[in-house]
Design a protein around this nucleic acid. Structure first.
Length: 829
RNA sequence: GCGGGUAUGGCGGAAUUGGCAGACGCGCCGGACUUAGAAUCCGGUGUCUCACGACGUGAAGGUUCAAGUCCUUUUACCCGCACCA
């Protein structure tokens, strides 16, 4: 009986024979199959890990048997907040808890029996890895892609520390639930915005889920519009605004500048100074929780200054308001209350003017009443007209369509040097500083004389000290280590202080796919020639939650490495799949508090890892996931036993040889080859559930044969041949079980060194085929036709059927549609 | 608010891409084996109807010889972004 003992037996043998070994000689057939590595925060592997790694291992083994040289590495994303928070709570050092977790997880991963290349393991918190993470930082710095800037960051006034975005839950601190505010701090950024256009256009060529591409597209947020320059009245100052609706330019009645904008103090008049300063202070203190609130009422104040409309030369008041974001576009907007809802709302509140310049485009006379509907007077108590249309009240631009006007107005602005076409992105630069202990130190020192000095490559890694007070008290933990902070300037040799922030863990995981194939390289981050042969990753599988974070960062870093001449690869992950989420039996997300957590270990112990893996593959559509079912596991256990019984029965039959195949033999060969064809197609698309359904069909056909064909008529030789092939077919799905069956059939170790069976098309062809015949679209009877029959012959056979007469009473045949090897439809009336 | 996705028996889920809806499995019903049960093996199982047959893929229309699949409208739930000018 298949059980955990059998798992252990074959795992041992696989390890001894190093079955997962990657043969570099065979690089021409390489297949880089990658699963997102584990985050060792919890002590154990959960169902989610299994659901990612188990089925993908099935896929990888299938690829191996197809003749590919499979590279399937595994590692640990070991830096990060949970380990540190755990340390704060328990006093156990993050290094110790992380290493202990990794040890447990490695053991569990081995019990899974996946074909991982453990030789290539990477652990991001180890010096030999983070040395190169730091090196990468220096490379970005060298290329002007890492820079320091004052940033408005999340601040918890109770913990007295900066929080990462992920630590802010609905505007509250994840640890103490205090209301989070904003604070200006100098932080390190990566200039991902330099790559915005390529990150966007590169999506086209990727074999990724459309949804994921859409998320990245929205995240990058390209928007095409115009830039318009407004001069400040009685001053030589001017400022730019970005707009996608320059066709409404003639409707501008005021302009708004973000409160943080540098021009604000320069244009604020004496009489407005007090009010403006108070407003700016208020904005700084605004709580994150309030900022996130829906339908927040807009506020703002007048600066006292006026801007000059670039075309009409009209005076328009300059306001500041926090509905204008300093971080998007130019931080200034032109306000057209008649045609923008936000401006409309603001203008109504502060009694600012409206000017309508767009009316709906008329389609025929009957809609002319629309003209009245959008009359200026009514706009005030209704809402803005934000659709495109025809220009009015716009002087030389009257009667143009919105699209024509955008073109003409921008060109006009360009000619008088007051504007141009402009593309803007929503994507912001990547803030990589973390005021945390458990991460890779940022390799930079601050010298009194030389300023910011990068740590020279020869001094890497900047080691993360072990003995540090990591409990939060308002300072970065590393800042409290005198030994760490105080150093000498690599440039002038004078006194200097180290950067005490660490890198966001997403930096560590943004390049690991390059390190796996060359993980022991102590000279370089990786060998370029070798990496260019191994990359890109052919199949990448992991959860969809990383769509806009990890997957975007990894693409960005890849392009940076390429531009630095370290690789020729532009996209790291050619093909991407997201597995679904396994929910608790109650249909809710698994959580300790709900008490609905399923522990893989219990099932592996009871049924063996193959049964557990098979259930995960069969019970759900892979990309959907769904609720856990206890019956599902037991039924899978029963199926594996049933499969074992028939394989053992066939093996025990006495040999006989029949020279000719009977109808039963041919039927069996048909089912086997037809199902095999489907299994191969399903595996290619990671449709594990339907592939296993077909394995069950083969199993059922074998039972049927043994039960229905008289013993002396059974073709045992054929049965055994099919059984042996069948073991090969199932081996990627049930690796331990298949290896055991393989040995029972006296086949030489290992089944994974054999080729996956090939469909024998000759057994799929039969002399006749059955076709359904519809009358007016409803199936009424079936006909048997020679498989060689053409449309005319099929039609003839279909029309000869006596059942048709019943339907033809008082009716005549109007049309006959014959779709070869599909269907016949007889239209009567 | 914007963008994306999903909806199929009692349940998990299929459907060669417009061609026999419900593969495969669970559950349920029946039979065989058994002193008995468990296990196992075999058969049945969308709904309504005694049956002929009719109806049936969230809802309502439409295109087509033919629609779960395409088009229009709509509802519910899930996910992403959210004052992005």
């Amino acid at each position: 009986m298949y059980n955990k003992k059998i798992d252990e037996k074959w795992q041992k043998k696989w390890e001894e024979t190093n079955i997962a070994k990657f043969n570099k000689e065979n690089i021409g057939k390489k297949y880089y199959c990658l699963e997102m590595f584990s985050y060792p925060s919890g002590a154990k592997l959960h169902v989610g890990h299994w659901y990612n790694y188990g089925p993908v291992d099935t896929f990888a083994r299938f690829k191996k048997m197809q003749g590919f040289e499979v590279f399937q590495p595994m590692g640990f994303d070991a830096f990060g907040l949970p380990a540190e928070n755990y340390a704060i709570k328990t006093g156990i050092h993050p290094y110790d808890s992380t290493m202990k977790n990794i040890e447990t997880m490695e053991k569990q991963l081995k019990e899974m029996g996946a074909m991982f290349n453990w030789d290539s393991e990477v652990i991001t918190c180890k010096e030999d890895y983070y040395k190169w993470t730091q090196w990468l930082f220096l490379k970005l710095y060298e290329r002007g892609l890492a820079y320091r800037k004052k940033a408005n960051v999340n601040w918890c006034p109770s913990c007295n520390t900066v929080l990462a975005n992920e630590q802010v839950i609905d505007g509250l601190c994840e640890r103490c639930s205090s209301v989070v505010t904003k604070k200006d701090l100098t932080q390190w950024f990566f200039k991902i915005t330099d790559y915005a256009e390529e990150l966007l256009s590169g999506l086209d060529e990727l074999d990724w889920p459309e949804k994921t591409k859409k998320i990245q597209t929205n995240w990058i947020g390209k928007s095409t519009g115009s830039i318009v320059t407004f001069d400040v009245e009685n001053s030589d100052l001017s400022f730019d605004v970005f707009t996608t609706r320059v066709d409404t330019l003639m409707g501008v009645t005021y302009v708004v500048v973000a409160p943080e904008h540098e021009i604000v103090p320069k244009i604020t008049t004496k009489s407005c100074e007090k009010e403006v300063n108070e407003y700016i202070e208020k904005c700084k203190l605004i709580k994150e929780i309030d900022r996130l609130a829906e339908n927040r009422e807009k506020t703002g104040v007048f600066t006292g200054s006026y801007a000059i409309h670039p075309i009409t030369k009209a005076r328009v008041p300059i306001w500041i308001a926090d509905y204008v974001l300093a971080t998007y576009g130019t931080g200034c907007v032109m306000a057209v209350p008649a045609h923008d809802e936000r401006d409309f709302e603001f203008a109504k509140k502060y009694k600012l003017n409206l000017k309508q310049v767009i009316i709906p485009k008329m389609i025929g006379e009957e809609k002319s009443d629309l003209k009245d509907k959008f009359k200026f007077e009514e706009l005030l108590d209704k809402k803005a007209y934000t659709e495109k249309g025809i220009l009015i009240n716009s002087g030389e631009f009257d009667s143009l369509t919105s699209e024509e006007a955008k073109e003409k107005i921008t060109k006009k602005l360009k000619s008088i040097n007051k504007g141009d076409f402009k593309v803007t992105y929503r994507l912001r630069d990547w803030l990589v500083s973390r005021q945390r202990y458990w991460g890779a130190p940022i390799p930079v020192v601050y010298c009194e004389k030389c300023g910011v000095v990068p740590v020279p490559e020869k001094d890497l890694p900047v080691k993360l000290p072990y003995n540090v007070e990591f409990k939060p008290d308002g300072k970065s933990p590393l800042a409290k280590s005198e030994e760490f902070v105080n150093t000498v300037c690599p440039h002038c040799g004078g006194k200097a202080k180290r950067e005490t922030d660490t890198l966001d863990t997403f930096v560590c995981s943004s390049w690991y796919q390059f390190r796996y194939p060359d993980n022991k390289n102590s000279e370089k981050i990786f060998d370029t020639d070798w990496i260019d042969k191994m990359l890109p990753v052919d199949k990448y599988v992991g959860g969809p939650e990383h769509a806009a974070m990890h997957l975007l960062y990894a693409r960005f870093i890849t392009k940076v490495l390429r531009d630095a001449g370290l690789t020729k690869v532009s996209e790291p992950f050619k093909s991407l799949v997201h597995q679904g989420l396994i929910l608790g039996p109650d249909g809710n997300k698994m959580s300790k508090s709900k008490g609905n957590v399923i522990s893989p270990d219990d099932y592996v112990e009871k049924y063996g890892s193959d049964v557990f893996r098979m259930y995960l593959m069969f019970g759900f559509s892979y990309v959907e996931g769904g609720p856990w079912s206890e019956e599902g596991v037991t039924s899978m256990s029963k199926f594996v036993s049933r499969l074992q019984r028939i394989l053992e029965t066939i093996n025990s039959l006495g040999n006989n040889e029949k020279t000719e195949y009977t109808k039963s033999d041919k039927d069996l060969l048909y089912v086997f080859n037809f199902s095999l064809k489907g299994i191969i197609a399903d595996l290619e698309q990671m449709q594990f559930n339907t592939a296993i359904a077909k394995i069950m069909e083969i199993t059922n056909a074998l039972y049927k044969y043994v039960a229905n064909v008289k013993e002396q008529e059974q073709n045992v030789k054929l049965l055994k041949e099919i059984a042996i092939k069948f073991i090969q077919v199932i081996s990627p799905f049930m690796p331990h079980f298949a290896e055991e069956m393989w040995s029972i059939y006296n086949m030489p170790f290992s089944v994974f060194n054999t080729s996956y069976p090939i469909v024998e098309e000759k057994y799929l062809i039969s002399d006749t085929i059955e076709l359904a015949v519809q009358v007016n679209g409803v199936v009424r009877y079936k006909i048997i036709v020679p498989s060689s029959a053409d449309e005319t012959e099929i039609e003839k056979i279909a029309l000869e059927h006596e059942r048709l007469k019943d339907y033809l009473v008082n009716k005549t045949i109007k049309k006959v549609i014959v779709v070869k090897s599909r269907i016949v439809n007889i239209v009567i009336g």
